[in-house]
Each structure stands twice: as C-alpha cells, then as structure tokens.
Design a binder for these strands. Sequence first.
DNA 1: GTATATCACATGTATAGTCAAGCTCATTAA
DNA 2: TTAATGAGCTTGACTATACATGTGATATAC
Lengths: 240, 240
Amino acid sequence: MQSKYDLIAQDLLSKIKHQQYAAGTFLPSEKQLGDLYSTSRETIRKALGQLEQQGLIQKIRGKGSIILDLQRLTFPISGIESFKELTQHQKLVSETQVLKQIKTMSPSHFNGLTLTSQPAHYLERLRLINQVPVILDCDYLLSPPITTLPKTAGENSLYEYIEQELGLTISYASKVVTVERIPEVTAKLLGLGSEQLAVVVRSLVYLEDTTLFQLTISIHRPDQFKFVDFARRTKVTQEA
Amino acid sequence: MQSKYDLIAQDLLSKIKHQQYAAGTFLPSEKQLGDLYSTSRETIRKALGQLEQQGLIQKIRGKGSIILDLQRLTFPISGIESFKELTQHQKLVSETQVLKQIKTMSPSHFNGLTLTSQPAHYLERLRLINQVPVILDCDYLLSPPITTLPKTAGENSLYEYIEQELGLTISYASKVVTVERIPEVTAKLLGLGSEQLAVVVRSLVYLEDTTLFQLTISIHRPDQFKFVDFARRTKVTQEA
DNA sequence: GTATATCACATGTATAGTCAAGCTCATTAA
DNA sequence: TTAATGAGCTTGACTATACATGTGATATAC
C-alpha cells in the first residue's frame, strides 16, 4: 500500500507530464494543495519534497513551487532502474539475449573492496536497442537471498521477478563508473574493434535490510553511452 | 543560519565519520536522539532523512537506523561540488591553470537544447592532480547574474566566489555524461594521443530562483575518470 | 512623487500528539 | 516442547498548531 504523499506526488507528476501544470509556472500553494487533496500541509510538503529531490520542481521561499522544464531531464540512468524499465520509459525497441546462466561463487574483490565469496547465480546478458548491441551485463545474484532463478527471469525483467515473485524490496546501490580497455572477446560482442575503450559500471545493489544481493558489471559501448543526472547542491558537507 | 535538523545531521555525520557510531551498528532510536538533542522526534526524523538520502544510513522499520559502510562510498562526484571542494575532501594535491578568460556570448545550443545566447565570461581551466593534467573545464558564466569575474576567482574556487562574494545560492544542475572523440588540441592538453576518446560532462547549473548561470563542458582523461554514485530505488515512477 | 510601513500570503522550521505497523522477546497455553 | 499471545520497543504516516522569514502589493506618511 502506498502512502498518501506518494500518491499525491505521483498525481502531481502525472499532471505535470500531461502539462495540466505547465513548466515555468507555479503550482498551487501548499495550503491550496492541502485543500485540494483534503490533507494537511505537512503531507503536501512531503510530496513536494519528493518532486523537488527528483528535479521536477523548485521550491522558492515566499513565492511557491515552480515547475522545471522536463525536456532538460530526459533519459535519466541515475537512480536504480532495470533495463526493461529504462527502455520502456524511453519507448525503445529493446531485446535481451541471455548468453550464460550458471551457478558459481561470487567474486571476493569488487571496486577495490574485499567481499566474502558466496554461492551465486551468474548471469550474462547482451542488451540490444534497435537490433544493435549496446550493453553487456554480467550479474552475480547471491544465493541467499536469491535461491532459485528461472530462465525466464533473465529474459524478462530481473527486478520484476525479485520484487514481484520473491517479494524482496530493492533499496539502494553504489555504483562506480570508469572507462577501461576491455578484452577482445567482449569487444566483439558489442561490435567494437580491438584495443577499444568501453564504459564500465560496477554496481553493488542492496535490499531493504542492507543485505547485498547483486553485483553487476555493466559494459557499455562508448558511442552509445549517455548518462543523465540531476543533482542538488547539498548543505551537509562531507568533510570533518 | 542553519536549522536545527541540519546541525543535528552534520553532528551525526561527524560522529559517524569519527566512528563514534560504528558502521553496521544501529544509531540510538529516534526518541533517544530526541532526548539527546533536546528536540522533537520530527526534527530528528528530518535529520535522519538527510543522512538516508545521502546513503550514510539505512532506516529499517521496527528496528532502527543502521549505519552503512562509508568505505564503499568514497570519491563521490555525484552532487554539485567544485573541483576545489572535491580535491580537498580527498586530500589530493591539486592545481588549476587558467588558460583563457574572456568575455563572449554563451552558446545557443547545449545538450541538444536551444538556449538564448547571452553575454558571458568564458573561462578555460586545466586541472592537475599530482602534477598530472586530468580535466579541462570550459565554463560560460552568464553575465547577469555574474557581472564581474576577478582573475583570482578562477584560480581559487569559483563557487566560493559566487556564494561568498556575490551572495548567490547555487541550487541544482543537470548533467549529461558521454564518451566522445575530442580535437587533437585538447587531447594534447590532457596528455593524450590523437584519435583518443575522452569523457565529456556537460552541465547546466542553476541558482535558487531557477536562473541559469553556468554552462560547463568538462573533459576528463578517460584513464583518470572515476564517477561514484549512490542511488536509491525511487517509488515514484517516471511513467504516465 | 517617493520612500516607508504594513498586510496578506508564500514557504521554512519546530513541536506535540495520535495511530498504524514491524520487530523482539518473554510469557502463556496447548 | 512447541506455538500463540501480547507487551514494549522501533519506525512510518498523518494531523494540527505555532511562529519565523521571505515576497509582493497596497496603503500611508513625508
């Protein structure tokens, strides 16, 4: 069940997308929205806080919440999204080829970290957009908590299987993006010549209870790679 | 002046960094923290919300707030940080060479967007870490709101000048990261051979009142490029 | 005419309270 | 012994209220 402020945030998002609220104009005031949705101002503020965090609106003290231009925020790979979710939003013709699916042990080193090696399902998938290979995804799905992994899960949406079928809640991820020379075998898979550079995204994905459940090495064709990010200047400094 | 929950968030962050609260353990409960800081539970919750957003803690319903491993979150280029802030956090020996500083007009096209061309200060700076060139930054600082730009601002911290001297508040940015072939001239500046790929980050940076004030093209040496991101799975879907 | 004061309204911060729901553990009942 | 219950903790959601502070327009005083 979703909370009231989640529903309001989604409703506002939908109204913004359908231009019932136009970019550059102000939303109704928090009080007015509270009356509209029959809720308190704090609940409205939580909904608006979500939209602000995602870069859909900008709150200005004493004035109101102005709607930002959505055009400038297309194709966000920021956040945690599955390939299926990503391509669906962009309405692209996508395809996934499962190259390998075996049981093995997870690597003990990742992103310069030492991890405990655990039983895992190893999954290798090639992603194509408009028949062109763009990404090679290599996943380790740790065996607790993911004990069984049907073949169809990899072909369809892995996250859909994990969240819908297994009832697990994916919570957060840390990612490291680098540019590296890749082995000739993988370069060929992506249709690249030898001695080529590729964008490598290494992710550690965690569940709600902070359990690590997925390690992913995602290799992108550099000429197809595009990463769009929205960032807010944080007040809390990271220094001592 | 900072708010109470900002101060609490910073205090908790500092205590986590200094391992007064160890990774993997739970923070005191919201009620206990409220007593500790002599404040209400809601105020504590706002502070904890900030820390959760930044990936420092994970809140678990019914249990508490668990402290995540900071080691796994080093070198975040996510967010909006100036080069100086970035290198200071990492305690790196950095240097900035101002290559060019002239008045010109801002480009009318950027990231596939059409913008209105405006008077601007154009700034070209080479960033070195440990005497090695790693980034070439090309900035357009729009003339309203940034009318005067002393030479020292570019050499020291540009954001310090904008925030401290001019009293402007930097609020948010949209970034697009791609990998591109770059002109031989710029490749030489970064110590790269010809026909080389580089990571190009194009940013639009805005003030609190949604005024665009900065356009940046940041060209990174691919072998030195590293982007670390923390992401939470969002509940609010971007689809219709 | 111009500057100032004021007022209405916007968001920001803080507090106190209520109820729901998840987790842990001890007690109880079968 | 085992299973169910419930107390007491936790966080999540929501409401109501108060006051501070920024914005903008109007009215007032000079």
